[in-house]
Design a protein around this nucleic acid. Structure first.
Lengths: 391, 391
DNA sequence: TTCTTTCATTGACAGCAGAAAATAAGGCGC
DNA sequence: GCGCCTTATTTTCTGCTGTCAATGAAAGAA
């Protein structure tokens, strides 16, 4: 990332200090001894690392009155003071920009969105800057400084360089978004792929906490996948990874915009469901809401389309599980609204296609409120704030 | 791993020293300055780390007379003295045991095999011990000590514990192979999954050197895959990963022994090819050699079976590339003997099914002599020798 | 011979983390 | 209320690793 234009320094100079802070951030209030165990350090090291962080107000100490052990000195819990700093997360979609203001613990304080008329970098940047201004005003009201921001975009994004290499959806190529946005907003900016950002949020603040290998599958307009292997988000040598949407599940299936047939996305993406429900019922279906309504009414063709979608998703997940053996797969996305319609098929297809002990993988669903994508972007900002060098 | 029964200590106590040694081992003779750059250390640190390694004879210095720069002091190259220590690698298959004696640079000195009549742990262990004894005799002839051994087995293997959790092929469950073999041979033993072991060999001594993300795909009786992500071999949370063989490429395809239809292995595995060539030509085909011969003769049905196999493999590889975005995929295995028959299909199917920049992934083939599997086991032994704690 | 250039080594030094010992903070039994 | 027991946390000291800046080495060039 380009050097932050203005930033409060975070007093964690060493990797160890950052690791300790991250552990407290993710694994909630902990005693110093617990913390030492989880971080694989001595208690002395923890004391030393924690002191400056408490001094700067990022960590606070308190006593857990409830769970006091019968014996020995009571432990002092260390936890992150969420209110110490604020972050802004921005998600750019095809037709709107979603922005959230979060605290240091990535809890959403304010969420806003702005419709987007023009997808060119200039207008998008202007709208994003406006949204940031609004959120900064909100932050002023809270009396806490905003110390970083994140922007997430679908497509091939080079986080280290802060450049959007190629975003088919927005029609962008090689846009140096981080530096442009930093200039426009005066904040440090982290840019990342949207699914990866969401994965970071799960890894640090969600269902991926404490796991070194897991996957996030998003179901919606597209079918996406974020992967964490060996404790790190997979970015791919060429900037693209987790393309579960274009895993073929049926070579005889419907054509996909990628040029192949029977991709998961061509069966279970929003557009595919709209098309298939329309075709099956003979109705003119215009959007997913309508397709979903038809299926909920029990119209056979519509239900079948959803069942097929569930099967495709389940197979896609099984493919991930067979290849990587993750501990957990978190299923999320707007498409989860239809979860009751295809949950069974997802699980069945997964169970059937998962090989051997890959089937032990824990499948878990997680609702995805619309601000969640933006929260992912905020999570990347928090990550950058903690370890300025990081990725 | 269990503590080595008898081992010459390797004088690399710190992770840094191990990293430096590994870099020299993989990236050939290097000057100290080069080494410092690659390891991200100062030149001083390299000097200090290298000294004891030279003292112990694991590294040697020599001058590169050819490529001397026009200016400045000529550089002294540092390289690993392969002859300093020997290792034994053993691969257990269903009907034979293959053993190799390698030097520290994993170059094969001697290769042997022994037919296997009984697959139970006891007889297998006895045969393996006999093979080790033979190889130790050979080593005596060379006057160099054997300091470690590795055994690779297909299936779910827990390397850290040295236990074969489940090997369907051998019919083993929870066999503590490392400790048993250590007792039987008197050598430190590392046990790992066969494909992962092969992947380690590629990572340290083959086409994966210097890459942090790549895959090895083996084509043969089964279709396997070893993955390296973030510079480390993927083992999977439940011990199983890289099951490309059971990725579905055609839900309407032939049934697979795993219970599904159209797995890569059910189309491109040896058994599948034998069956399909037999069915297509109406001939009674008994083994792959015969199937291959028919296809080479240009018998249409046989050629088509190989073409289909190529397509399935190509799709499987594309799936890996779409999900992980590796820099390179190394295709290997005994099945490569038929490479001329399906190379085109592999590449075409890969190119068609790879999404976006995943198609930039470098597909590379590598012949696999029969001792190569055993060499993989030796590579794991070398790895364990260098960092005793390691994975 | 002396310079210049590049590679390598040295020795002083700073910083981090671990070990052990000391200290803190409760409850408990008397 | 006092001393004891247990567990948590801090302090102090020590070792080690790696960096820095200066120095030495080994060429070819002037």
């Amino acid at each position: 990332m380009s050097p932050p234009p203005s930033a409060e320094a975070f007093p964690a100079n060493t990797p160890t200090a950052a690791q300790i802070f991250t552990t407290v951030l993710s694994e909630g209030p902990l005693t110093r001894l617990d913390l030492a165990r989880r971080a694989g350090l001595s208690a002395a090291a923890v004391t030393k690392a924690v002191r400056p962080l408490i001094g700067a107000g990022y960590l606070v100490e308190d006593v857990d009155e409830d769970a006091r052990p019968a014996l020995g000195r009571p432990a002092n819990l260390v936890r992150v003071d969420g209110g110490r700093a604020l972050f802004i997360g921005i998600k750019v979609t095809g037709d709107e920009i979603i922005g959230v203001l979060t605290d240091l613990r990535c809890r959403i304080m304010v969420a806003r969105h702005l419709p987007l008329a023009d997808r060119d970098p200039g207008p998008v940047l202007a709208s994003a800057a406006e949204l940031v201004r609004e959120l900064l005003t909100e932050a002023d009201g809270l009396g806490v400084r905003v110390v970083g921001s994140g922007i997430s975009v679908s497509g091939d994004v080079d986080r280290a360089e802060g450049v959007v290499r190629y975003s088919p959806f927005l029609g962008w190529r090689d846009v140096p978004l981080a530096s442009l946005a930093a200039e426009a907003t005066g904040l440090p900016v982290t840019v990342d792929n949207d699914v990866r950002a969401l994965t970071v949020a799960e890894q640090w603040f969600g269902a991926g906490v404490g796991l070194s290998d897991f996957a996030v599958v998003t179901v919606g307009a597209g079918i996406g996948c974020g992967l964490v292997v060996h404790g790190k988000v997979v970015a791919g040598a060429h900037g693209v990874a987790g393309e579960i949407g274009h895993v073929t599940v049926d070579p005889a299936g419907p054509p996909c915009h990628c040029g192949n047939r029977g991709c998961v996305e061509a069966i279970a993406g929003d557009a595919a469901l709209v098309r298939q429900v329309g075709a099956a019922t003979g109705t003119h279906v215009t959007d997913v809401a309508q397709a979903l309504a038809l299926a909920r009414q029990g119209v056979p063709g519509a239900r079948a389309a959803y069942a097929r979608a569930g099967e495709a998703i389940g197979r896609g997940i099984a493919t991930v599980a067979n290849l990587l053996g993750p501990e957990r797969v978190i299923i999320s996305g707007e498409g989860l609204a239809a979860y009751d319609l295809f949950a069974e098929q997802i699980r069945d297809a997964f169970a059937a296609a998962a090989f051997g002990s890959a089937a032990q993988c824990d499948l878990r669903t997680r609702p995805l409120p619309f601000e969640e994508w933006a929260r992912g972007a905020a999570a990347t900002a928090i990550q950058s704030f903690i370890r300025s060098d990081a990725y």
